[in-house]
């Protein structure tokens, strides 16, 4: 395992500020108790658990944050939000990272590539919410 230094310069601070602006949350409120990750129904699918993900944001690591799949696995069920002892809207942090990603790259889901059969089969509630969360 190799170690590296993490610098928190202007780029990192700008990322933290953007996440805080979009989400309306203070990322430094988080004291890393891990309750969010423990209660998350999808932790097993995430390459960074929710609290690890928030830690990356606290350190302004934009690239590593966006590279994680955490915010794309999150289904906005708000279990973390209602349970956070620091009253952070964790789901809003996830949304903020999704927004930042989509504003640079608006197609997490490429609608044109979805098979026609499943478009026909799926209820519109699924399509509407998916496109709202995964296309910009």
């Amino acid at each position: 395992m190799s170690y590296g230094y993490i610098k928190i310069g202007s780029e990192e601070k700008a990322f933290i500020a953007k996440v805080e602006e979009i989400s309306g949350q203070n990322v430094y409120s988080c004291y890393q108790c891990g309750k969010c990750s423990a209660g998350c129904a999808f932790s097993y699918k995430m390459d960074k658990t929710v609290n690890q993900f928030i830690h990356l944001i606290q350190l302004g690591q934009k690239e590593r944050t966006l590279d994680a799949n955490t915010h794309w696995i999150c289904a906005s069920c708000f279990t973390c939000t209602v349970r956070c002892p620091r009253e952070i809207d964790v789901a809003a942090l996830m949304e903020a990272v999704r927004e930042i990603s989509l504003r640079e790259n608006p197609e997490k889901v490429r609608i044109a590539d979805l098979p026609k059969e499943s478009l026909e089969k799926l209820p519109n509630i699924a399509l509407v919410s998916n496109f709202r969360k995964k296309t910009g």
Partner: peptide, 15 residues
């Protein structure tokens, strides 16, 4: 209230 996976049905059916 364990989330059913919601809108992931469109592109991540395995979840």
């Amino acid at each position: 209230k364990h989330c059913c996976g919601s809108y992931h049905i469109v592109d991540q059916e395995d979840i």
